[in-house]
Simulated scan of single mutants.
Amino acid sequence: MNLFFLFIYFIIITVVIEIHVILFQLTGLKVEVSRFQVISMMTGTGFTTGESELILGHPIRRKLAAFLILFGAFSLAVIISSISNFLTNELNMKEVLSVAGCVLLTFIVLKLAWVQKILSLIFNRKLVYNIELGDMPVRDVFLTDKQDHLLNLRIYEESRLVSKTLGQFIHGYDQMDIAVLFIKRGDLKIRRKLYDTKIHEGDQIFIFGDKRAIIDQFKDDISIMEAKLKTKTI
């Protein structure tokens, strides 16, 4: 009886995983990322990957994640309890089958295209009206197109930008598909007169725009930065 219970409960866990994969997809997350993160949250392993920022930076995904983490902890307790009572008949199989049926029905309903469409509209509407941009991941705010690129350019002494202004370095910058967001100099963030500010060694320039245009304009400095960072990691 207990073996049957464990089998049913593992089915419930599997279906809960698939339900949340669908829900995460409806918030705009890729299916492969969704499945890995759902399993990670439920088991409490692997959630420290860089992709976890896609979950933590999104309010709806955070709520789903909280349920998964709690459900995972509860599931572990249930499995341990079931194994410890392996030779008893204390488990009510009727209740277990009822729960399994409800979870399976939820999964089947969520697989319906019209249900997914309605949920997607609800999720997106909540994002429009209830979310500050600061609550959203960088990818959802800036990188909405395949050609969009956000660069954190670190300036070293070899850089051609040192002691120059961005206006001197980028000719016709007002006609280019590139925007300098701010310059970070230690704890200071410079947001005014960005194209007239002389660049110092150690500055970080945050640049947004077309990926090809950014690479073409800053390719030498990007190469210097990559070489420096690679040396630090060796």
Rank of each mutant, 00 (worst) to 15 (best):
L6C: 08
F169Y: 09
R160M: 02
N92G: 05
M176T: 03
I12W: 08
V115P: 03
I13E: 04
L56P: 03
L121F: 00
L119K: 05
D216V: 12
R139Y: 03
N92Y: 00
A73K: 15
M136G: 02
D174R: 09
V162S: 01
I222G: 13
V78D: 09
S34E: 04
R62Y: 07
L112F: 06
D221R: 07
T233G: 12
V162N: 01
S81K: 14
L87T: 06
Y173T: 02
F182T: 12
F5D: 05
E90N: 14
A77K: 15
N124I: 08
R154Q: 09
R185M: 01
L76K: 15
N124G: 08
R212D: 05
I69Q: 11
F218I: 12
I199G: 00
L151M: 03
Y156V: 01
A227M: 13
F67K: 09
R154F: 11
L143M: 08
L54A: 08
G57T: 12
I222Y: 07
F208G: 13
Y129W: 09
K211A: 06
M1A: 10
S98N: 07
V21R: 03
V115C: 04
R139L: 11
S98P: 01
L56Q: 07
F74C: 12
F206I: 07
I79T: 13
I79Y: 09
L112E: 07
V31R: 06
A77W: 10
T144C: 04
E32T: 14
Y156S: 06
K111Q: 12
I79Q: 10
D220H: 15
V128Q: 04
E18L: 13
D140T: 10
R212A: 13
A73H: 11
K30Y: 10
F74Q: 14
I224L: 11
R62F: 04
L133E: 06
L76R: 15
K228W: 00
R35P: 07
L229H: 13
K184H: 07
N130P: 00
A65M: 04
F218Q: 09
L194A: 05
T88C: 06
R62A: 04
F169Q: 01
K228R: 13
P59I: 08
S159W: 05
S82K: 10
M176R: 10
D177M: 07
T144M: 06
T197E: 12
L143S: 02
F123Q: 01
F169I: 04
I183A: 02
F47G: 03
T27G: 08
Q217G: 06
L54R: 12
L127P: 00
L188W: 08
Q204T: 13
R35V: 13
L91P: 06
V38H: 09
F5A: 11
S75A: 10
T49M: 14
K230T: 15
L6P: 13
G101C: 05
I207M: 05
D148F: 03
V141M: 04
S81P: 04
I170Y: 01
L181I: 10
F5S: 09
T27M: 08
N152A: 06
V21G: 04
G209V: 08
S163L: 00
